[in-house]
């Protein structure tokens, strides 16, 4: 194996490891929502630290890779997209932690409330999407990444409904107003989490196809005004 290939394999392996831990964080957040006893908060914190240090390590490794191998074409796109992906993964881990913090204050949370806001469905979509983009990254397959772009719409829809659902529920049970409001913040965070996954999907498409998807409208503006 060429030294360059070894270095890129190391970056890839570390990204995948970081990815796994991030998925675990989402799963744990979902579990915590249903049963606070199931999840140890200490473990969550430890994982968070791992994620942060993986991001740092990837940053250094990518810098080294650029400096030592002057990569071009697909190699260059690999490094650029990995840098972005590690940032997005770190943000996703962050979101998961914030969701857990919010849920911690909801001491009287019931399964009916969770079902009302379709939060389980959101979690499932997020976990599924994250798994798919990981698969896309590992197999360098942009088709799988494109499927994820579509799934993001589901999260947006559910999040949009959350406010009106909260309003109706609060009118019925004003004493639980705080929990309902907290749950809207959970859906909002899950929607943001979905956005990060979408970003990752776009990075993978850029990596594989060299096609820049993000900010499509801004790009037209750029071409009209700056180029």
């Amino acid at each position: 194996m060429l030294p360059q290939e070894q270095a890129s394999k190391m970056i890839r392996d570390n990204t995948v490891k970081m990815w796994m831990i991030t998925s675990v964080q989402i799963e744990k957040a979902q579990k915590y929502m249903h049963n606070k006893e199931d999840v140890k908060l200490k473990e969550l914190k430890k994982n968070e630290k791992y994620i942060d240090s993986y991001e740092l390590k990837l940053y250094f490794d990518c810098e080294n890779f650029l400096a030592l191998f002057s990569p071009v074409a697909i190699d260059l796109r690999f490094v650029l997209s990995t840098l972005h992906i590690s940032y997005d993964l770190e943000r996703i881990g962050d979101m998961a932690r914030k969701i857990v913090q919010t849920l911690k204050t909801c001491t009287t949370l019931t399964e009916d409330m969770i079902a009302l806001f379709e939060i389980d469905r959101m979690f499932d979509v997020c976990s599924d999407s994250l798994e798919k983009v990981l698969n896309a990254y590992e197999t360098i397959n942009s088709d799988i990444a494109r499927q994820v772009l579509v799934q993001d719409a589901i999260l947006n829809e559910i999040n949009k409904l959350a406010t009106s659902r909260a309003v109706t529920a609060i009118q019925k049970n004003p004493q639980d107003a705080e929990i309902y409001l907290n749950l809207t913040s959970v859906t909002r965070r899950l929607e943001r989490l979905g956005d990060h996954i979408k970003n990752i999907a776009e990075e993978i498409i850029f990596y594989v196809e060299a096609d820049v998807l993000k900010h499509k409208k801004s790009r037209d503006f750029l071409e009209d005004n700056l180029l």
Partner: peptide, 9 residues
Amino acid sequence: EKTQNYITG
């Protein structure tokens, strides 16, 4: 693909 293979070493 040949070009890519060549320039990426």
